[in-house]
Design a protein around this nucleic acid. Structure first.
Lengths: 332, 332
DNA sequence: CTGTTAGCGCCTTCAC
DNA sequence: GTGAAGGCGCTAACAG
């Protein structure tokens, strides 16, 4: 049946007023069960569906969420997106996908366009915006949940416990007898990278290891970055027997660098990654890594956002999810 | 500046009528340059932004697209999504992400919800809907582009030339001296799988190869599926010296199966994949594969959709993109 | 060139 | 229980 059916049509057909139809649709009380039944029957028969925009204009709520990520083609964010979409859908919300393409200006523009569309709230992931602009976003949007980026108290957050991840990885290597453990640190500006480093340093310190700052090597968060970083680090500090890597891509790069330097993994060098993307289990040797619950990060963010939208501010203002060590061949 | 500013406010502040402001905003002609300038200045000063929903109600166009995929966390679709989003954004459109989760019923529901939101058009990828429902979607949505699924003439399509992919892979293996080439065919119900098979059979036939239908083995489109399929196939037909695989994940599974059977790749068995996902270059041995231009699939779909929405139906009713052979170690 | 008059389709408030 | 106004913020069709 056609799309042009409006509420008046249904009302006329059912022999009631427009308002009664509206009440039925919105599950209001104070409608005679018989009338309700008759209206529902007509709605069904005509295939009537209320217009979201008209309703949005009248109620100022659109049953619509925004999801902003730096790069949707990154497996990290696409898994997260699945979590957000799933919970939103269950709650009757549609989600706008905003891809910032790793560009703060574009991120800002996307956020503005979401305002124009009157989303009820936004899940903002790994924002590349500076503090000032980030705060501005928070003040202009009706509701925001920050994922993977901390701002200040009073804002809803969903975070991974990166520090715990750093501890897990480092502790595992220590327990296997490694003392001289390098860290391929990823981007210098990354919040997560600094937290993981903190966990790493803390664990080494509490084990009484004679730590050398030269063991830490920043690198791009890619296979190439890992390759170059590992090559440099292993040549500068040949005493290292293990590497903790910012993420799995970097770890794969480290694997390649080790092979070129004739160092056999795991015998001559242990390698631990982060994230546990699909790839991690499939490279040779398979990667030991810290699994990040990506889907849960997204679903939690959506849950927090819906809770806030629906006015239960007491519910979870800050959710911290824990990583989990997955032991495979690169550091058995 | 606040969000509560409406057009009347701007009009009052600029000393003109509401209509003049509307004209300025919509870049209509017939506005005195000075007036226009004054209005623009006020708009800027007040930080006014027109309401998308109000405008949507009035014009019946929402500057909004729907994107429906079976699984956004699949790298295939997330790359495609990036292409769609990018072109949509450039054209001033926002895109709703609909994740069907490989479930036809959910796909249908998502499509309905997009109707309610009055999207101007939909990019529908690898639809799992039957022909009847698919047609129904087309008739109810103002504009639809089908990706990776053929329906009938008169509908906009963006497709990969799967048959050419099958030919490319098979021809490459033939040129390397392989005659007995198996096909790990993926899901029996997959449209792409059947097209790739057609290219494979055609190439074998025209090379005069004495083909055996037992060389074809269906399997799930995953690493496990590839593993099991390859194990079965190689045991049933030990004469095979090469495998063409439905996709890269299947190919990785084949690699694992070969290793377990003590067959060394590429010496004892050549393997060719499909898609060229990130993984393909990183496994050992690196996969020879047919690269699918995922981003372009998405951006083309968005372009076709915008063309149709903007009423240039003569523009590209069917776009067919070509795969490209990438030669690596698994079949040098 | 600019302003006035009607809606777009629905919901809110208030009567009945 | 139900219905009749009025308005959400904007644009289309006419006037001037």
């Amino acid at each position: 049946l056609a799309r042009n059916i409006r509420m008046v049509e249904v009302a006329r057909e059912a022999g009631v007023s427009l308002m009664t139809v509206s009440r039925v649709i919105n599950h209001k009380q104070d409608v005679n069960p018989e009338t309700r039944q008759r209206v529902l029957e007509v709605i069904h028969r005509l295939g009537y569906r209320p217009s979201g925009i008209a309703r949005g204009l009248a109620t100022r709520r659109t049953a619509t969420l925004g999801l902003v990520v730096p790069d949707i083609s990154n497996p990290f964010f696409s898994s997260l997106a699945r979590g957000v979409e799933h919970i939103a859908y269950e709650g009757g919300y549609n989600v706008f996908l905003g891809n910032a393409e790793e560009d703060p200006q574009r991120e800002w523009d996307v956020l503005l366009s979401l305002e124009d569309k009157h989303v009820d709230g936004v899940v903002l992931c790994s924002s590349r915006l500076d503090q000032a602009r980030l705060k501005s976003v928070l003040s202009r949007q009706p509701a925001v949940v920050l994922v993977n980026r901390r701002l200040e108290a009073g804002v809803d957050h969903v975070l991974l416990d990166d520090e715990a991840g750093g501890r897990l990885a480092t502790r595992h290597l220590l327990s296997r007898g490694h003392i001289q453990i390098g860290f391929l640190a990823g981007p210098a500006a990354s919040y997560s990278a600094r937290r993981r480093e903190a966990g790493y340093r803390e664990t080494l310190a509490s084990a009484g290891v004679d730590f050398d700052p030269g063991w830490i090597q920043p690198c791009a968060p890619t296979v190439e970055g890992g390759q170059q970083g590992a090559a440099r680090l292993l040549q500068a500090r040949p005493e290292l027997t293990a590497l903790f890597c910012y993420n799995d891509l970097v770890a794969v790069g480290a694997l390649q660098a080790a092979a070129r330097l004739g160092r056999c993994v795991p015998q001559d060098l242990a390698v631990v990654g982060f994230d546990d993307i699909l790839l991690a289990a499939l490279v040779t040797p398979a990667l030991t890594t810290c699994r990040v619950p990506l889907y849960e990060l997204g679903s939690q963010a959506a849950r927090s956002l819906l809770a806030r939208i629906r006015g239960r501010p007491e519910a979870c203002r800050e959710v911290v999810l824990q990583p989990e060590l997955v032991i495979r061949q690169s550091a058995p």
